[in-house]
Simulated scan of single mutants.
Amino acid sequence: MTVMSIRLQSIPGTEVALGWAGAHSVVVDRPEGRAGGQGLGFNGGQLLGLAIGGCFCNDLHYVAHEMGVRLASISVEVILQLEGSPLLATAAELRVSLRAEEAEADLDALVRRAEESSTVSNSLARGLPVRLSRLPG
């Protein structure tokens, strides 16, 4: 089993949070003018879309390496549908375009295998349980 720890902490003097995992960080905020948001970072829906698309980009590279395919370019667009109150993500569509260095590369098989192994997409599709615990102060 692999365990990852991701942390978020408010930035003093702002209503913005800084999130990090290892040596990598991201700013999390709301749109400017919404609940104190300053528009300085990604909101939760954008981060969800980035997680889905970013994971899939990585999976394309993993599978390409396994298949011995050299990718020349990858482009992934995530269309995230949100509905209701509270606002919930109800669907996500990935639009994928890629090119290989080799003309004979089976890109359909590569995309299919990446889809089958995508950690984030498969976790969401299977209903990832989320538990909350409040720590002291």
Rank of each mutant, 00 (worst) to 15 (best):
residue 125 A to E: 09
residue 122 N to D: 09
residue 48 L to W: 01
residue 128 L to T: 13
residue 59 D to C: 01
residue 100 A to N: 12
residue 70 R to Y: 00
residue 117 S to Y: 03
residue 72 A to Y: 04
residue 51 A to F: 01
residue 45 G to W: 02
residue 68 G to C: 07
residue 110 L to M: 11
residue 118 S to C: 15
residue 74 I to F: 04
residue 43 N to F: 06
residue 83 E to A: 15
residue 37 G to Q: 06
residue 68 G to K: 06
residue 72 A to R: 15
residue 63 V to L: 01
residue 113 R to M: 09
residue 37 G to H: 00
residue 20 W to D: 11
residue 1 M to V: 04
residue 40 L to Y: 02
residue 73 S to K: 08
residue 116 E to Q: 15
residue 15 E to I: 07
residue 86 P to W: 11
residue 107 L to W: 13
residue 35 A to H: 11
residue 136 P to F: 03
residue 117 S to A: 14
residue 18 L to M: 14
residue 18 L to Y: 03
residue 89 A to Y: 03
residue 43 N to A: 12
residue 93 E to Q: 14
residue 1 M to W: 01
residue 115 E to C: 05
residue 117 S to D: 02
residue 62 Y to N: 05
residue 125 A to W: 02
residue 136 P to E: 15
residue 37 G to T: 05
residue 22 G to M: 05
residue 30 R to Q: 05
residue 133 S to I: 08
residue 96 V to N: 03
residue 97 S to G: 14
residue 36 G to D: 02
residue 63 V to E: 00
residue 39 G to C: 09
residue 41 G to Y: 12
residue 30 R to H: 05
residue 114 A to G: 08
residue 80 L to H: 01
residue 104 E to F: 10
residue 77 E to T: 11
residue 101 E to P: 06
residue 126 R to V: 01
residue 62 Y to E: 03
residue 129 P to W: 08
residue 2 T to H: 12
residue 113 R to I: 05
residue 65 H to M: 07
residue 109 A to H: 11
residue 105 A to N: 03
residue 39 G to I: 03
residue 119 T to P: 02
residue 96 V to C: 04
residue 73 S to V: 05
residue 18 L to G: 00
residue 51 A to V: 00
residue 133 S to T: 14
residue 25 S to P: 01
residue 94 L to W: 02
residue 59 D to F: 00
residue 75 S to G: 13
residue 9 Q to D: 09
residue 122 N to L: 09
residue 27 V to Y: 06
residue 25 S to M: 01
residue 69 V to D: 00
residue 102 E to N: 15
residue 86 P to I: 09
residue 58 N to P: 00
residue 118 S to P: 05
residue 37 G to L: 04
residue 39 G to A: 13
residue 124 L to I: 02
residue 99 R to H: 07
residue 103 A to W: 03
residue 132 L to E: 13
residue 134 R to Y: 13
residue 51 A to R: 03
residue 38 Q to G: 02
residue 13 G to D: 14
